[in-house]
Computed example of a mutant assay.
Amino acid sequence: MLKVKDLTVHYGAIKALHGISFEVNRGEIISLIGSNGAGKTTTLHALSNIVKKTEGSVFFEGEDITHLAPDAIVRTGLIQVPEGRRIFANMSVFENLELGAFTRKDRAGIKKDMERVFELFPRLKERFRQAGGTLSGGEQQMLAMGRALMSRPKLLLLDEPSMGLAPILVDEIFSIIQEINDEGTTILLVEQNAFKALNIADRAYILETGNVVKTASGADLIRDESVKKAYLGG
């Protein structure tokens, strides 16, 4: 579904990604694991063309999207939920969700998908007239995910969905990620909580200083002693 080959990104003189390659197959949950500064968020931004690639190629569903504009990439079905949520704070929950469907014209489908978002995130329905900025951190993460789902993503890029959340909310968010995947959406997950991310991943890639240093199934990496030591607290 997604094929990334020799992806290189520079920030000025700093080389953030060193020619990384990986694949995401339809229906999978793939996790990118690594410490701060490893290049995880840069990878997602490069896929969405929010940051420019120095070298490399990105193919999505057989089409070369390497140089597509970010809004054109959204229209292909590659949708990102950014780190830090970045909801529209002065707009209502309802308006945020409507903006998620800005590429669509099927009003009946949009209404149906909004109802599904409210099923996944009942608190958003309770607060649908509230300004996004008045929501709690967990509710804002739900809104960011709901807004992305309104685009009917084929591949959902999730950047640190558990950041700053209480443990009980982390469990809830990961349960919903699995449910979204079970319903047919492929997921590429960047996550600092390596244990949670590996537990739900079909496969995972370990990033260190802009390089892919290891890949295996999530279950195998949880048992890997070097991964335990580096990312799972021993």
Rank of each mutant, 00 (worst) to 15 (best):
E183K: 14
L158K: 11
E115N: 14
T134G: 11
G132H: 07
L188C: 11
L149T: 02
T185E: 00
L143V: 04
G137A: 11
N199V: 00
L198E: 12
D113F: 02
A201C: 04
D182Y: 09
D159H: 07
Q178A: 02
I168Y: 12
Q192P: 06
G184V: 00
E119M: 13
M150H: 05
G109M: 00
N193D: 08
T185K: 00
P122K: 13
L155P: 05
L169C: 09
Q141K: 06
Q178F: 03
G137M: 09
G138N: 08
V170Y: 08
I200A: 07
E183M: 09
S175D: 15
M150N: 06
L157T: 05
I110C: 05
N199D: 11
F128A: 05
N193I: 00
L165W: 10
E183H: 10
G109K: 09
S151P: 01
E115T: 12
I177K: 01
R123I: 15
P153Q: 02
E119H: 14
K111S: 14
G137I: 11
T185V: 13
P122D: 09
V117K: 01
G132A: 09
I200F: 10
P167T: 08
M142P: 00
D202V: 07
Q130S: 14
R203N: 14
E119C: 07
T134H: 05
T185C: 03
L198F: 10
A197H: 10
D171L: 09
L157W: 10
G132W: 04
L169Q: 10
E183L: 11
R123A: 13
